[in-house]
Amino acid sequence: MTATVFSIANQKGGSGKTTLAMNLAAGLSGRGRTLVVDADPQGSAVQWSGMAPERRPFPVPVIALGDNLASEIQRFRRDYDFIVVDCPPSLETERTNKAMLASDRVLVPVLPSPVDLWASMRLARAIEQIRPIRPGLEACLVVNQLEPRSALSRAMQEALAEFEIPALASPIRRRAVYRNVAIEGRSVFCLGRQGDAAKAEIAAIIEEITGP
């Protein structure tokens, strides 16, 4: 077994890395053995899973890794089908670079806002810079907190076309359930009908990133 490794990265804070990492991992766990690596010293992913009651743990193990994350991920590849790495909001530490180098695919959540788009350009450039030493590394933008009725959200398409890396066709909408599940240490996949729309959008992302 050798895992497919997804890094969720953007040096811009609050773009939705942890939210995407946790829900993506929960969704992927239906397809194979999945591990979340919390590479962020803030420890949000670890805290998220720690909110789950003992009788109903988060469906995926979450481990925190530090500067040795590249070699550790390499080691874990043998034991899992999917590894999802939640990166810190920084390019200044080596961790994001190490995580991306150890990955098969980088997912970059971006918010539909000018300031977030400008800042995310830096990460897109960093990805281009590591491609020569990590050939075959795939990368894509994932629009998060989309609000279909807002003019800016609708204007995203043209702006995303300016990035060197493509955007996934499936966006994530702004929904209260994404905030609520964190407090209970769950994912949208544990919800009943109120989670259906969110489940469908995470499932669509999984389809896109695991497809042929």
Partner: peptide
């Protein structure tokens, strides 16, 4: 393309062509 869309795209193009010095 709406005005807001072209302005947003233009601003991203500007961020791309004129990146801040990383240091």
């Amino acid at each position: 393309m709406s005005r807001i869309a072209s302005r947003l795209a233009q601003s991203v193009r500007q961020a791309k062509n004129d990146p801040p010095d990383p240091r």
